[in-house]
C-alpha cells in the first residue's frame, strides 16, 4: 500500500470528508446554524456570528475549514445535554457502520460524530471547546500548524476541529 492511500484514508487527514459534503443529514445543517437560540455558553454569541459569516461566504469552503462540533451533530450551540445525547443517538442509528446504508464512509463519519459527542456531552470540555472556537477565529492567521498536518494533507493543509479533539 502506498503512503498516499494510507494518508488519504485517514479521517484527520482529509479536511474535506465526503460525508460532510454529500450526506443528506449534514446538508440540512446551515439552516439550523443561522438561527441560534438562547446562547447558553459565554463565548457562543461571538463565535456563532463568526461562523455564520464564514459559512455564508462559501458553504463548500466553510465545510472545508471549520465544521464545528455542533454542525456535526446538527444542533444549535445552545442545545441542552438531552438534545445533544438525542442528536448523537439519532445520527448513530444512521451512521454507525453496523446499520449504515453506505458502509464505506460510515466509519469515518461515526468517529467524527462520536468525537463531537464526547466533547459536547462533557460540560467542561464543551466550555473549553466553545472558548477555542472564539480564540481560533481571532488568531486564524497566526495559528501554528501542528506537525501532523504538514505531511498528511496531501495538498490540503487545513486543520479541522475533530483533529484537535483527538489530542
Amino acid at each position: 500500500m502506498t503512503s498516499a492511500s494510507i494518508l488519504t484514508s485517514h479521517p484527520l487527514i482529509s479536511p474535506l470528508s465526503p460525508s460532510f459534503t454529500h450526506s443528506g443529514d449534514h446538508r440540512q445543517l446551515p439552516a439550523t446554524n443561522l438561527r441560534f437560540s438562547k446562547p447558553r455558553v459565554t463565548s457562543s454569541a461571538t463565535s456563532s456570528a463568526e461562523k455564520t459569516r464564514s459559512y455564508s461566504t462559501n458553504t463548500f469552503q466553510a465545510a472545508n475549514t471549520a465544521v464545528s462540533l455542533y454542525q456535526i451533530l446538527g444542533i444549535p450551540m445552545g442545545a441542552t445535554g438531552v438534545e445533544i445525547k438525542s442528536a448523537y443517538r439519532k445520527l448513530a442509528r444512521t451512521c454507525h457502520p453496523d446499520v449504515a446504508q453506505v458502509k464505506s464512509a460510515s466509519t469515518e463519519e461515526f468517529i467524527k460524530i462520536k468525537a463531537a459527542y464526547s466533547t459536547l456531552s462533557d460540560p467542561e470540555k464543551r466550555a473549553d471547546y466553545d472558548r477555542t472556537i472564539f480564540r481560533r477565529h481571532r488568531s486564524v492567521l497566526s495559528s501554528q500548524e501542528p506537525a501532523y498536518s504538514r505531511f498528511r494533507g496531501s495538498g490540503y493543509t487545513s486543520r479541522n476541529w475533530e483533529s484537535d479533539q483527538c489530542w
Binding site: 500500500m1 503512503s3 494510507i6 504538514r150 505531511f151 494533507g153
Partner: peptide
C-alpha cells in the same frame, strides 16, 4: 496500526507509512 516518521518542516513522510 499505522506508523511512520516525518521530519519537522517536511511535508511528506520520510518513507511510506507502515500498516
Amino acid at each position: 496500526v499505522l506508523a511512520g516518521v516525518v521530519m519537522p518542516g517536511a511535508q511528506t513522510p520520510v518513507n511510506p507509512f507502515m500498516e
